[in-house]
Amino acid sequence: MRVPVEMPRLGYDTEVGKIGSWKAKVGDAVTAGQPIGELETEKATVEFEAPTAGTLVEIVTAAGSEAAVGAVIAYIDDGK
């Protein structure tokens, strides 16, 4: 099943997030909780984690791009 990875909310007053970089690439096996990328904010770079174990099958939001909080930024196939 393809599990969506959503853009997390970073701070109460932000509605969009910016992907700084992807640490995992399409085809990589990931574990639940593994940091798979970084978000850039005004104050810090924040790591975000894989919500489930599986294979990163699609990156929707490329590094350097922004997405709304809650938007799907990638998919992980959990093999179930």
């Binding site: 970073l10 701070g11 109460y12 810090a44 924040v46 790591e47």
Partner: peptide, 13 residues
């Protein structure tokens, strides 16, 4: 981790 830019979203928010 704050100084190394390795915070997690929940810690940030």
């Amino acid at each position: 981790r704050t100084k190394a830019n390795k915070l997690r979203p929940a810690e940030f928010s």
